[in-house]
Each structure stands twice: as structure tokens, then as C-alpha cells.
Simulated assay, not measured.
Amino acid sequence: MATGNMRFLVLGGTGSIGYAFAQELLRHQERVTLLVRNRQKAQKLFGPCPTLQLVEGDAQNRDLLKKLGADATHIFHGINYPYEKWQGNMERVTQNVLEAAAINKATIFFPGNIYNFGLIPVITETTPQAPTTKKGAIRVKLEQMLRQATDRGECRIINLRMPDFWGPNVMNEGIAPVFRGALAGKPMPWLYRNDIPHQLVYTPDAAKVFYKLAKQPQLPAYVEYNYAGEVVPSIKKWQAQIAEIAGTKPQHKLYPGWLFKLMGLFSAGMREISEMGYLWQHTILLNDEKLHQVLPGLQRTSMQQAIAETLQWHRESLEFGI
């Protein structure tokens, strides 16, 4: 059931983690406003729901965001851009979110990632941030903006740091082709290395964590937690499990690092992926002991069930043209 007078504004709700969080809120009958650039796409994704309001627009529209923020107690900052468009866009949209949150001193949910740290084998909440890439530096700047806003008493922040996302409606080029390849009996691609342990988080599980943290009493104005998800022994073994559940024979396809360097000569997007290559060449792990102290009963969806749910979502999305 809905929790009191909480009113949620979700930005990026047709994307990966934003979609999962919006679905979690709607399951609890919370009042949710979704700011979307494509209303028709959102209607296909969510269907009719009595507690959901769709507003068409862009989070770069500062006045619109402040208007929506005036009625929100919680704002989910799930806005993302292609790598090559991060510079400038991410800072501007985050400033807009902060100004919208300041109206009601709302709580901002921020999905953090591991780019802030460079190549560090294990990351805790006290690990010094030392980015080695342009996008890592941008992430550090965004989190500094969030922390400074709480220092000024303008809002509250829940920063949940996570590894790679996967799950229903995770449509990025690293994840969606794995599941669609498995369904079609075609090669399942990956980057750099598929033979080392890799940490992944199932988006519906992350959404549950965000919602549980929203209901926690007396959290500090700025809180940061790692959510580790699950470590698979290798992407190759994980893909084989996906294919088995899909009822097909696993086929693997590995894109080598030199290919991105070569393509980066002609494509800004490929240059950005090449810069982040260390993420796929090494095992980097988040430690989430701090989160489990706050949420001691936290459970993950079993890998078998999570894969089955994601495959079913892709079957249906292909059928309905999502």
C-alpha cells in the first residue's frame, strides 16, 4: 500500500533503472509522475495505472521540472545520455533536478556507479574517489553537486552505487543483445573479456532497495550505499545459463579492445567506450556490508528467476514492438 503523503517524480522512467523503480512504486500504489520525452513509448511500457501520471517533456526544461518538483516529495534522477553527450548535459540536468528538489526540500534518489574510482579491485563507501576517465570525472562532479546541495539544506540525497544493470527494459547495447541473442539462438556479444568474474545488479532488486531506503526513518541528509548485486563466475557461464533457460544453444561473441580503438578513430561513441575498457578487462567489486546493516533482511531474486523474467520481458517487447 502507498506510504502516507509521498509523491514521486521519476525522471528517466522509460530507461533501465528508472523503469524498474517506477514499477516498484506502482506495485505499492504510490503516486507517480513520469516525465517522458515519448508518451506513446511510456504508455506501451506501463499500460494503464490509476496512480501514474505521464507528462511529456524534457528534463533540460528547467521551468517544467520546477513546476513538477513543486508537487514532489521524492525525485528519482534516472536521466542518462549516450557517453559522447555526457559533458554539459549531465551537469545541466542535475542542476535542474536540484532546483526542483529545493522547492519542497525533496529527497533525490541517485543511481551511482563505479566510474568515480578508476581501477580499484574492491570499492567501499569510504574508498577515495580517483577517476581515470572523463566520464569518471563527470560522475565525481555530479556527486559533489548533490552533496553541496544537502550541505546548504536544500534537499536530501540517497546515492545508491551499483555495478552493471540488467533486467527488463535494460536496452543498452551491452545487455539487450545478450538476451535477444539467446532467444534467437544467435551469438551473445560481450566486450574485451568474458572469462573473468563480473558483478551485475538485477534492476528490480535495485528498485526494491531504493524503495526500502525511502521508507527508512532518520537517515542523514546525504547517504551513500553500495549495492553489490551478484557476482557471476564469468560472463561466458552467465550467458550459457541464459541460453539454457531460453531453450537455445549458447553462442558467444567477443569484441576485442583493439576494435574500439580502431572504430574510435571515426566515432566519438566508440572512443568513449574504449576509454572505459578497464571495466570489462578487470573484475571490480562493490562491497555492500553497510547497506545490509541498514536493511538486514535484504533478499535478491534468484538468478534463475531473474533470467526467466528478463527473457519473458524481451519476448513480449519484441511481440508488441517496444
Rank of each mutant, 00 (worst) to 15 (best):
A106E: 04
K44S: 11
L298N: 03
T310L: 00
R37T: 12
N113M: 08
M171S: 11
A240N: 10
A268S: 13
L45D: 01
V201D: 00
A206N: 01
T283H: 14
I242C: 07
S274H: 15
N96R: 03
L259G: 03
E24K: 07
N159K: 09
E289R: 15
G112S: 10
Q299E: 15
N113H: 05
T132S: 14
R152W: 08
Q144C: 11
E244P: 09
H282M: 02
S16R: 00
R315S: 02
G136F: 09
R39D: 13
K208A: 12
Q53D: 14
A306W: 00
Q299H: 10
R27K: 14
T127Y: 11
K135S: 13
Q199F: 06
K141F: 10
T203Q: 03
Q53E: 15
M303V: 14
A246Q: 02
F266M: 13
L291P: 03
G247L: 12
Q312C: 07
T124A: 05
H74I: 06
F165G: 00
T14S: 11
A130D: 14
N172I: 07
N287S: 13
L142R: 02
W280Y: 13
I157N: 01
M145V: 04
R300Q: 14
Y83V: 04
I196H: 13
L35W: 07
L65G: 01
Q241G: 03
G47Q: 11
A306E: 01
P121I: 01
V140T: 14
L26R: 01
A240C: 12
E143M: 11
E173G: 11
K290F: 12
K208H: 13
V32Q: 05
Q95C: 07
Q239R: 08
Q305R: 12
I114K: 01
A240K: 02
K208M: 10
K236W: 07
G257C: 04
P256K: 05
Q129F: 06
E230M: 13
Q87P: 02
V231L: 11
R31E: 15
M6P: 04
K236D: 11
E289G: 12
R300C: 08
E125K: 08
V294H: 09
W166T: 00
Y202M: 05
A268V: 09
P187L: 05
E309K: 02
I79E: 03
K85I: 05
F21N: 00
N89G: 09
K186C: 02
V10P: 03
R300T: 10
A246P: 02
P256G: 10
T133V: 08
W280M: 03
M6T: 14
P121Q: 06
